Computed example of a mutant assay.
Amino acid sequence: MNTELSQVQLRELLDAARNIQPWMTRIRHRLHQVPEPAFREFETVGFVAAELTELDAALVRRVGDTGIVAELDSRLPGPVVALRADMDALAVEEKTGAAYASRHPGWAHSCGHDGHMACLLGACRVLREIGLPAGKVRLLFQPAEEQGNGAKLMIEQGALEPLPAAIFSLHGWPGLDVGTIASRGGTVMAASDVWAVRLVGRGGHGARPQEANSPILGLPGLIEALADMTGDELVVSPCVVEAGQAPNVIPDAAVVRGTMRTLSPEGRTRALEEMARVVARACGPLGLTHQITLDQHTPPVANDAALHERLVGTARGMGLDFALLSGPSMGSEDFGFYLEKCPGVMFRLGVGKTCPSLHNSAFDFCDEALPAGAAMLAAMALEALRSS
């Protein structure tokens, strides 16, 4: 049996998604107005749950307080295929000037999760209207991607049970023409570790520094040495410095926190070993002791090669532009946790070449990109159901 959809079928899917663009736009604008922090997406999840009910998607599981697992069921034997969208927002003061701008001061959908949710709800509507050939499509609305641990909680609380045959997700991407699909097989986004280095010296009076050993004096050399570790397949970024509480007291300790991005388990091991050497070299001559801690690890997003090839054919068959990525992004995404359990693909969806960058206060997901995102998610789900 031919498991791939024909060009006619793919373009019918895209037409179906284009027909509901006004509906998806209204959904995105509504979600855009209520950005919420990780694990506190209460208004968001209430709205999403109501829309899923309207679409006859069965709510099968709540994860924590704000995660949702829903399903479209063909009532015929077959595999499960999963589609995922993230829901949380960023601590950013929005400056888009949009009529539907954030109503929550200090919070904004500056990473486009409002668009991701609208695309997934759009895919759900298209799939409901067209019908599934067999099996089920599982819809994962995940909290706390920005913290890097929402996917892990979803998995721990059964979102992948029974294990899907495949899982798909998208990310809106500035710098690509609107509606362009981009991806690659293998690693597409880096692993991330949140680290902290604590320097310990000897505190004292600000008037008598000769009687103390200030850990603050070790910070400039340490920060520069850590940043100098950055190379083609490694990014080390010191981002937070904590030291002292009073202007006349030399503190006993100082802390530097940041992130490390790597592309493979082997590269991560080498980077951690090098970090230990760098910190020791920076602290030793100053008589400072040190401690390195890792607070959080997010694995790389590694796309399945065969499913990526199917994605390429699907995008081109649909008449969408496709861009093959030359290499991975050093940004991270907790979708990698799902891909450790089952094969899948995360692809980029172009939201405009001149669109402000992700996490920028002026970023706003492009409504014209919604049909392509919804149609691609629906098509990848249908083809996975037909092939499993």
Rank of each mutant, 00 (worst) to 15 (best):
H113R: 07
A166L: 10
Q147Y: 05
G131H: 08
K136G: 04
S110T: 14
E71V: 15
D193A: 14
V80H: 03
T96Y: 10
G148D: 10
V126K: 00
E54G: 11
V92T: 14
R128A: 13
M154I: 03
G106F: 05
P143R: 12
T187K: 13
A191S: 15
P162W: 12
C124I: 04
D193V: 08
G131P: 01
G106D: 00
V126M: 11
G150Y: 09
I68H: 10
T180A: 14
H113F: 03
E93W: 06
S192F: 09
G115P: 12
V92P: 03
F168P: 11
V188N: 11
V126H: 02
A166G: 14
A190E: 12
C119H: 02
P174T: 09
V69I: 14
S74A: 13
L120M: 14
G179S: 14
R138G: 06
A144Q: 03
V194F: 08
G67W: 03
A134M: 12
G78A: 10
T180S: 15
V126F: 00
Y100R: 02
L83W: 01
P77E: 09
D177Q: 13
P77W: 00
A58Y: 00
E71R: 12
A58P: 00
F168Y: 15
G158P: 06
A98L: 15
G64V: 00
L76W: 01
L127V: 04
G67K: 10
H113C: 07
D193Y: 10
G179P: 05
S192L: 13
G106S: 06
E54H: 10
R125N: 12
D193R: 14
A151F: 01
D73N: 15
G148A: 09
A144K: 06
G115R: 02
A57F: 08
E161N: 12
I155M: 12
W107I: 01
Y100E: 11
E94H: 03
C119Y: 00
L121F: 02
V137E: 01
C124A: 15
A89P: 03
G175I: 12
T66R: 02
L90R: 10
W173T: 14
H116F: 01
W173Q: 15
A101L: 04
R61Q: 11
P164R: 08
A182P: 01
G106I: 06
R103D: 14
E145T: 07
E94F: 12
G175W: 11
A190S: 14
G67Y: 09
E161L: 14
G135E: 09
L139M: 13
L90T: 05
C111L: 02
V194C: 00
H171N: 09
G78I: 09
D193W: 06
G158T: 06
L132N: 02
M117T: 15
D86A: 04
G179L: 09
V194M: 08
L76S: 13
G97T: 13
A190H: 11
C124H: 05
A196C: 13
A159V: 07
R138M: 09
S110V: 01
H171R: 15
L199W: 05
A134D: 04
H171A: 14
G112A: 01
L72E: 07
R128E: 04
A85K: 06
E94W: 02
H109T: 03
A101N: 07
A144F: 00
S192N: 15
E146C: 06
T96A: 13
P79H: 06
V197K: 13
L83M: 05
Q147H: 12
W173S: 14
H109Y: 07
W195T: 09
R198Y: 00
G135V: 05
A191N: 11
